[in-house]
Amino acid sequence: MATATVDTALDTAHEDHGSSTGISNTKLAMWVFLGSECLLFGGLISTYLLYKTRRGPGPTNLAIPTDVFDIPFTSVSSFVLLMSSLTMVLALSALTRGDNAATRTWLLATATLGGVFIGGQVYEFTTFLREGVGFTSNPASSAFFTLTGFHGVHVSMGILMLMSLYVASVQGNLTPKNTETVEIVGLYWHFVDVVWIFIFTVIYLIPA
């Protein structure tokens, strides 16, 4: 009966990469993972929305995050994170061209912008704490710190990955054949960015 190796029997045109769909396993896995992450951040965002005005027990009237938001400051850090997405695509683009120096520059820029964002977040957290909005104050603040903290951890993971790529590039191990690796790290990075686009509007800008 008809059996054949993959190399010889390809019954549809789109299977010509060897995988049934012609797409990369890893990239597909990353996209499935990002789809799943939507449910994770959705849960955290919904929790915050549900709790955003809950100040805790009656007369004490504790402060909630919306009382102490510093919109101009957050806008700047949102802009920084947004621009890190640009440097990320530029890094990938440079690697595709085989321009290793530019790749390294843009990778480092991306990680740095991410670091600036994280620094801004740490500053914001400490300011909030000073103004009496602590993690344990009330449901609103617990939900706020958890949501933005989860996002911050994601950004930090991304920075770790970017730095790993940077080191690999310095050691000469990042070549145009690794574009997919960079692209996948980029997908993760952009995802963290779009989550922040959502958070910035829904959590910060839309009034309570």
Binding site: V6, H17, G18, G22, S24, N25, K27, K177, T179
Partner: peptide, 13 residues
């Protein structure tokens, strides 16, 4: 004959 277990796609870039 031999072949790989994963019909690995070539890099797509």
């Amino acid at each position: 004959m031999s072949e790989t277990v994963t019909e690995t796609p070539a890099p797509e870039a």
